[in-house]
Design a protein around this nucleic acid. Structure first.
Lengths: 153, 153
DNA sequence: TTATAAATGAAAATGGTTTCCATTATCATA
DNA sequence: TATGATAATGGAAACCATTTTCATTTATAA
Protein backbone atom coordinates (compact mmCIF):
# COMPACT_ATOMS: atom_id res chain seq x y z
CA UNK A 1 0.00 0.00 0.00
CA UNK A 2 2.26 2.76 -1.30
CA UNK A 3 -0.66 5.11 -0.83
CA UNK A 4 -0.83 4.48 2.88
CA UNK A 5 2.91 4.73 3.06
CA UNK A 6 2.82 8.15 1.51
CA UNK A 7 0.17 9.17 3.96
CA UNK A 8 2.10 8.42 7.10
CA UNK A 9 5.33 9.63 5.53
CA UNK A 10 3.62 12.94 5.11
CA UNK A 11 2.15 12.92 8.57
CA UNK A 12 5.55 12.22 10.07
CA UNK A 13 7.16 15.11 8.26
CA UNK A 14 4.26 17.37 9.09
CA UNK A 15 4.80 16.77 12.78
CA UNK A 16 8.56 17.06 12.57
CA UNK A 17 9.30 13.42 13.22
CA UNK A 18 12.15 11.65 11.52
CA UNK A 19 11.73 8.52 9.49
CA UNK A 20 13.82 5.64 10.79
CA UNK A 21 14.28 2.00 10.02
CA UNK A 22 12.45 0.99 13.16
CA UNK A 23 9.50 3.23 12.49
CA UNK A 24 9.24 2.03 8.92
CA UNK A 25 9.19 -1.59 10.00
CA UNK A 26 6.64 -0.94 12.73
CA UNK A 27 4.32 0.71 10.24
CA UNK A 28 4.83 -2.21 7.89
CA UNK A 29 3.91 -4.71 10.55
CA UNK A 30 0.88 -2.70 11.56
CA UNK A 31 -0.45 -2.34 8.03
CA UNK A 32 0.23 -5.93 7.05
CA UNK A 33 -1.20 -7.72 10.03
CA UNK A 34 -4.87 -7.34 10.63
CA UNK A 35 -5.97 -7.63 14.17
CA UNK A 36 -5.49 -5.91 17.46
CA UNK A 37 -1.88 -6.33 18.33
CA UNK A 38 -0.23 -5.67 21.64
CA UNK A 39 3.09 -3.89 21.91
CA UNK A 40 4.84 -7.17 22.52
CA UNK A 41 3.23 -8.86 19.55
CA UNK A 42 4.34 -5.98 17.37
CA UNK A 43 7.81 -6.20 18.88
CA UNK A 44 8.08 -9.88 18.05
CA UNK A 45 7.03 -9.36 14.45
CA UNK A 46 9.37 -6.43 13.99
CA UNK A 47 12.10 -8.43 15.63
CA UNK A 48 11.92 -11.11 12.91
CA UNK A 49 13.19 -8.68 10.30
CA UNK A 50 14.99 -6.17 12.46
CA UNK A 51 16.30 -7.76 15.63
CA UNK A 52 18.02 -4.55 16.55
CA UNK A 53 14.78 -2.69 17.23
CA UNK A 54 14.04 -2.74 20.94
CA UNK A 55 10.76 -2.90 22.79
CA UNK A 56 11.23 0.64 24.04
CA UNK A 57 11.20 1.94 20.50
CA UNK A 58 8.03 0.02 19.84
CA UNK A 59 6.31 1.75 22.73
CA UNK A 60 7.65 5.15 21.75
CA UNK A 61 6.65 4.77 18.13
CA UNK A 62 3.19 3.56 19.04
CA UNK A 63 2.74 6.67 21.16
CA UNK A 64 3.81 8.84 18.28
CA UNK A 65 1.44 7.10 15.89
CA UNK A 66 -1.45 7.48 18.27
CA UNK A 67 -0.50 11.11 18.74
CA UNK A 68 -0.61 11.95 15.06
CA UNK A 69 -3.82 10.03 14.56
CA UNK A 70 -2.62 7.09 12.50
CA UNK A 71 -3.24 4.53 15.18
CA UNK A 72 -5.91 3.79 17.72
CA UNK A 73 -5.16 2.43 21.16
CA UNK A 74 -7.59 0.09 22.84
CA UNK A 75 -8.04 -1.53 26.17
CA UNK A 76 -9.99 -4.73 26.07
CA UNK A 77 -9.44 -5.58 29.69
CA UNK A 78 -6.61 -8.05 29.25
CA UNK A 79 -4.00 -5.90 30.95
CA UNK A 80 -2.20 -4.72 27.89
CA UNK A 81 -2.88 -2.04 25.33
CA UNK A 82 -3.89 -3.11 21.85
CA UNK A 83 -3.38 -1.13 18.68
CA UNK A 84 -5.15 -0.83 15.38
CA UNK A 85 -4.28 1.16 12.28
CA UNK A 86 -6.84 3.77 11.34
CA UNK A 87 -7.51 2.71 7.77
CA UNK A 88 -8.39 5.84 5.96
CA UNK A 89 -9.32 9.44 6.33
CA UNK A 90 -12.99 8.74 5.77
CA UNK A 91 -15.30 6.86 8.11
CA UNK A 92 -15.41 3.67 6.06
CA UNK A 93 -13.00 1.83 8.27
CA UNK A 94 -14.75 2.70 11.49
CA UNK A 95 -16.07 -0.24 13.43
CA UNK A 96 -16.96 -1.47 16.88
CA UNK A 97 -15.89 -4.55 18.77
CA UNK A 98 -17.24 -7.73 20.25
CA UNK A 99 -14.87 -9.16 22.82
CA UNK A 100 -14.96 -12.68 24.19
CA UNK A 101 -14.16 -12.54 27.88
CA UNK A 102 -13.03 -16.15 27.83
CA UNK A 103 -10.67 -16.59 24.90
CA UNK A 104 -10.12 -12.87 24.30
CA UNK A 105 -11.11 -13.20 20.67
CA UNK A 106 -12.09 -9.87 19.15
CA UNK A 107 -14.60 -9.47 16.35
CA UNK A 108 -14.81 -6.26 14.38
CA UNK A 109 -18.20 -5.41 13.07
CA UNK A 110 -19.69 -2.60 11.08
CA UNK A 111 -22.96 -4.25 10.13
CA UNK A 112 -25.23 -2.14 12.23
CA UNK A 113 -23.06 0.85 12.10
CA UNK A 114 -25.31 3.22 10.17
CA UNK A 115 -28.07 3.29 12.71
CA UNK A 116 -25.58 3.19 15.51
CA UNK A 117 -23.61 6.07 14.07
CA UNK A 118 -26.74 8.10 13.76
CA UNK A 119 -27.65 7.39 17.36
CA UNK A 120 -24.12 8.15 18.47
CA UNK A 121 -24.08 11.39 16.56
CA UNK A 122 -27.33 12.46 18.17
CA UNK A 123 -26.10 11.45 21.59
CA UNK A 124 -22.82 13.24 21.12
CA UNK A 125 -24.57 16.40 20.02
CA UNK A 126 -26.92 16.29 22.96
CA UNK A 127 -24.21 15.58 25.50
CA UNK A 128 -21.76 18.12 24.22
CA UNK A 129 -24.44 20.79 24.46
CA UNK A 130 -25.78 19.80 27.84
CA UNK A 131 -22.44 19.29 29.51
CA UNK A 132 -20.40 21.72 27.41
CA UNK A 133 -18.20 18.78 26.67
CA UNK A 134 -16.03 18.55 23.58
CA UNK A 135 -16.31 14.93 22.56
CA UNK A 136 -13.24 13.60 20.82
CA UNK A 137 -14.00 9.91 20.56
CA UNK A 138 -16.34 7.23 21.70
CA UNK A 139 -15.85 3.68 22.81
CA UNK A 140 -18.53 1.15 22.16
CA UNK A 141 -17.84 -2.45 22.94
CA UNK A 142 -19.79 -5.58 23.67
CA UNK A 143 -18.40 -8.17 26.04
CA UNK A 144 -19.55 -11.74 26.29
CA UNK A 145 -18.99 -15.29 25.13
CA UNK A 146 -18.13 -16.19 21.57
CA UNK A 147 -19.80 -19.20 19.95
CA UNK A 148 -16.85 -21.50 20.63
CA UNK A 149 -16.57 -20.63 24.29
CA UNK A 150 -20.33 -20.87 24.74
CA UNK A 151 -20.16 -24.47 23.55
CA UNK A 152 -17.02 -25.28 25.44
CA UNK A 153 -18.34 -24.15 28.84
CA UNK B 1 -29.47 1.66 53.39
CA UNK B 2 -30.42 -1.44 55.34
CA UNK B 3 -32.14 -2.68 52.22
CA UNK B 4 -28.96 -2.68 50.20
CA UNK B 5 -27.17 -4.19 53.13
CA UNK B 6 -29.60 -7.07 53.20
CA UNK B 7 -29.10 -7.54 49.49
CA UNK B 8 -25.37 -8.04 49.55
CA UNK B 9 -25.55 -9.94 52.80
CA UNK B 10 -27.78 -12.39 50.99
CA UNK B 11 -25.56 -12.47 47.94
CA UNK B 12 -22.55 -13.19 50.05
CA UNK B 13 -24.21 -16.11 51.76
CA UNK B 14 -25.58 -17.38 48.50
CA UNK B 15 -22.09 -17.64 47.07
CA UNK B 16 -20.62 -19.13 50.23
CA UNK B 17 -18.59 -16.09 51.21
CA UNK B 18 -18.13 -15.10 54.81
CA UNK B 19 -18.99 -11.70 56.15
CA UNK B 20 -16.02 -9.97 57.71
CA UNK B 21 -15.27 -6.61 59.23
CA UNK B 22 -13.19 -5.61 56.23
CA UNK B 23 -15.83 -6.57 53.74
CA UNK B 24 -18.52 -4.75 55.69
CA UNK B 25 -16.50 -1.58 55.75
CA UNK B 26 -15.61 -1.81 52.08
CA UNK B 27 -19.28 -2.13 51.18
CA UNK B 28 -20.06 0.80 53.44
CA UNK B 29 -17.49 2.99 51.75
CA UNK B 30 -18.70 1.97 48.33
CA UNK B 31 -22.34 2.68 49.06
CA UNK B 32 -21.68 5.95 50.85
CA UNK B 33 -19.32 7.57 48.41
CA UNK B 34 -20.63 8.37 45.00
CA UNK B 35 -18.13 8.37 42.25
CA UNK B 36 -15.78 6.01 40.54
CA UNK B 37 -13.24 5.07 43.12
CA UNK B 38 -9.96 3.35 42.57
CA UNK B 39 -8.75 0.54 44.80
CA UNK B 40 -6.39 2.90 46.56
CA UNK B 41 -9.06 5.51 47.17
CA UNK B 42 -11.25 2.83 48.68
CA UNK B 43 -8.32 1.62 50.74
CA UNK B 44 -7.71 5.09 52.14
CA UNK B 45 -11.34 5.56 53.12
CA UNK B 46 -11.55 2.14 54.70
CA UNK B 47 -8.29 2.81 56.45
CA UNK B 48 -9.77 5.81 58.29
CA UNK B 49 -12.11 3.58 60.26
CA UNK B 50 -10.28 0.29 60.07
CA UNK B 51 -6.55 0.79 59.75
CA UNK B 52 -6.01 -2.92 60.03
CA UNK B 53 -7.55 -3.67 56.66
CA UNK B 54 -4.83 -4.04 54.07
CA UNK B 55 -4.76 -3.11 50.41
CA UNK B 56 -4.64 -6.77 49.44
CA UNK B 57 -7.99 -7.35 51.08
CA UNK B 58 -9.41 -4.39 49.21
CA UNK B 59 -8.38 -5.91 45.89
CA UNK B 60 -9.66 -9.33 46.86
CA UNK B 61 -12.99 -8.03 48.08
CA UNK B 62 -13.47 -5.90 44.99
CA UNK B 63 -12.92 -8.98 42.86
CA UNK B 64 -15.48 -10.88 44.88
CA UNK B 65 -18.01 -8.07 44.56
CA UNK B 66 -17.51 -7.86 40.83
CA UNK B 67 -17.84 -11.62 40.65
CA UNK B 68 -21.20 -11.72 42.37
CA UNK B 69 -22.50 -8.81 40.38
CA UNK B 70 -22.69 -6.11 43.03
CA UNK B 71 -19.94 -4.00 41.59
CA UNK B 72 -18.85 -2.87 38.18
CA UNK B 73 -15.22 -2.47 37.21
CA UNK B 74 -14.20 0.22 34.76
CA UNK B 75 -11.14 1.31 32.92
CA UNK B 76 -11.11 4.95 32.00
CA UNK B 77 -7.58 4.95 30.70
CA UNK B 78 -5.86 6.37 33.75
CA UNK B 79 -3.94 3.20 34.56
CA UNK B 80 -6.02 2.04 37.46
CA UNK B 81 -9.29 0.20 37.74
CA UNK B 82 -12.30 2.13 38.99
CA UNK B 83 -15.31 0.67 40.72
CA UNK B 84 -18.95 1.55 40.96
CA UNK B 85 -21.73 -0.05 42.96
CA UNK B 86 -24.54 -1.44 40.84
CA UNK B 87 -27.44 0.44 42.41
CA UNK B 88 -30.35 -1.84 42.08
CA UNK B 89 -31.67 -4.94 40.49
CA UNK B 90 -33.61 -2.96 37.90
CA UNK B 91 -32.15 -0.85 35.13
CA UNK B 92 -32.86 2.50 36.77
CA UNK B 93 -29.30 2.99 37.87
CA UNK B 94 -27.76 2.17 34.51
CA UNK B 95 -25.84 5.01 32.95
CA UNK B 96 -23.02 5.81 30.60
CA UNK B 97 -19.95 7.96 31.03
CA UNK B 98 -18.32 11.08 29.73
CA UNK B 99 -14.62 11.14 30.57
CA UNK B 100 -12.39 14.18 30.43
CA UNK B 101 -9.03 13.12 29.07
CA UNK B 102 -7.36 16.11 30.70
CA UNK B 103 -8.54 16.27 34.30
CA UNK B 104 -9.99 12.74 34.37
CA UNK B 105 -13.34 14.03 35.60
CA UNK B 106 -16.15 11.56 34.97
CA UNK B 107 -19.74 12.53 34.32
CA UNK B 108 -22.50 9.98 34.60
CA UNK B 109 -25.45 10.56 32.36
CA UNK B 110 -28.69 8.83 31.66
CA UNK B 111 -30.43 11.62 29.78
CA UNK B 112 -30.47 10.07 26.38
CA UNK B 113 -30.59 6.62 27.69
CA UNK B 114 -33.99 5.55 26.41
CA UNK B 115 -33.16 5.90 22.76
CA UNK B 116 -29.69 4.66 23.37
CA UNK B 117 -30.93 1.62 25.21
CA UNK B 118 -33.29 0.81 22.43
CA UNK B 119 -30.51 1.10 19.89
CA UNK B 120 -28.22 -0.96 22.06
CA UNK B 121 -30.84 -3.62 22.53
CA UNK B 122 -31.37 -3.85 18.78
CA UNK B 123 -27.65 -3.96 18.15
CA UNK B 124 -27.11 -6.61 20.78
CA UNK B 125 -29.88 -8.76 19.36
CA UNK B 126 -28.52 -8.43 15.86
CA UNK B 127 -24.93 -9.13 16.86
CA UNK B 128 -25.71 -12.08 19.08
CA UNK B 129 -27.62 -13.70 16.26
CA UNK B 130 -25.15 -12.97 13.51
CA UNK B 131 -22.04 -13.92 15.46
CA UNK B 132 -23.63 -16.46 17.84
CA UNK B 133 -22.25 -14.31 20.59
CA UNK B 134 -23.71 -14.24 24.07
CA UNK B 135 -23.49 -10.60 25.05
CA UNK B 136 -23.04 -10.07 28.76
CA UNK B 137 -22.39 -6.35 28.95
CA UNK B 138 -21.64 -3.30 26.91
CA UNK B 139 -19.33 -0.38 27.39
CA UNK B 140 -20.28 2.97 25.99
CA UNK B 141 -18.12 5.92 26.81
CA UNK B 142 -17.38 9.32 25.41
CA UNK B 143 -13.93 10.83 25.76
CA UNK B 144 -13.08 14.46 25.36
CA UNK B 145 -12.62 17.77 27.11
CA UNK B 146 -14.87 18.97 29.90
CA UNK B 147 -15.98 22.60 29.97
CA UNK B 148 -13.30 23.62 32.45
CA UNK B 149 -10.45 22.05 30.55
CA UNK B 150 -11.76 23.44 27.28
CA UNK B 151 -11.47 26.95 28.72
CA UNK B 152 -8.17 26.30 30.41
CA UNK B 153 -6.40 25.05 27.27
C1' DT C 1 30.49 16.36 5.04
C1' DT C 2 29.26 17.98 9.20
C1' DA C 3 26.77 19.68 13.13
C1' DT C 4 22.91 19.12 15.98
C1' DA C 5 19.08 17.54 17.74
C1' DA C 6 16.15 13.58 17.53
C1' DA C 7 15.94 8.66 18.08
C1' DT C 8 17.65 4.59 19.98
C1' DG C 9 18.70 0.26 23.01
C1' DA C 10 19.68 -1.67 27.36
C1' DA C 11 18.96 -1.56 31.89
C1' DA C 12 16.74 0.21 35.71
C1' DA C 13 12.70 2.20 37.67
C1' DT C 14 7.76 2.53 38.20
C1' DG C 15 3.32 1.47 39.91
C1' DG C 16 -0.96 -0.95 39.94
C1' DT C 17 -2.18 -5.50 40.93
C1' DT C 18 -1.39 -10.43 42.37
C1' DT C 19 0.73 -14.13 44.82
C1' DC C 20 2.72 -16.38 48.86
C1' DC C 21 2.44 -17.92 53.29
C1' DA C 22 2.07 -17.94 58.08
C1' DT C 23 -1.55 -16.21 61.11
C1' DT C 24 -6.31 -15.01 62.33
C1' DA C 25 -11.30 -14.94 62.06
C1' DT C 26 -15.78 -16.86 60.68
C1' DC C 27 -19.47 -19.86 61.37
C1' DA C 28 -21.67 -24.62 61.03
C1' DT C 29 -21.85 -28.12 64.08
C1' DA C 30 -21.69 -30.32 68.43
C1' DT D 1 -21.07 -21.60 74.07
C1' DA D 2 -17.05 -24.06 72.55
C1' DT D 3 -14.70 -26.15 68.74
C1' DG D 4 -12.62 -27.15 64.50
C1' DA D 5 -12.43 -27.01 59.49
C1' DT D 6 -11.45 -23.81 56.35
C1' DA D 7 -12.02 -19.24 54.47
C1' DA D 8 -10.00 -14.74 54.94
C1' DT D 9 -6.31 -11.82 56.10
C1' DG D 10 -1.98 -8.65 56.12
C1' DG D 11 2.55 -7.76 54.78
C1' DA D 12 6.18 -8.62 51.91
C1' DA D 13 7.64 -10.10 47.76
C1' DA D 14 6.66 -11.05 43.08
C1' DC D 15 4.71 -9.72 38.75
C1' DC D 16 4.56 -7.46 34.48
C1' DA D 17 3.28 -3.93 31.15
C1' DT D 18 4.98 0.38 30.51
C1' DT D 19 8.13 4.42 31.29
C1' DT D 20 12.37 6.66 32.38
C1' DT D 21 17.31 7.31 32.22
C1' DC D 22 21.38 7.94 29.89
C1' DA D 23 25.12 7.18 26.97
C1' DT D 24 25.39 6.20 22.03
C1' DT D 25 23.81 6.25 17.30
C1' DT D 26 21.33 8.15 13.45
C1' DA D 27 18.64 11.29 10.37
C1' DT D 28 18.63 15.34 8.04
C1' DA D 29 19.19 20.33 7.07
C1' DA D 30 22.80 23.26 5.88
Amino acid sequence: MPCNKRRWHGKFREYGYRITVGRKEILDVLTNSKGHLSAEEIYLKVHEKHPSVGLTTIYRTLDVLVGIGLLQKFDFGDDRARYEIIDSVNEKGHHHHLICTECKKIIDYKDFIDEESEMLKKTEKFLSEKYKFEIKKHVMEFYGLCSDCKKRL
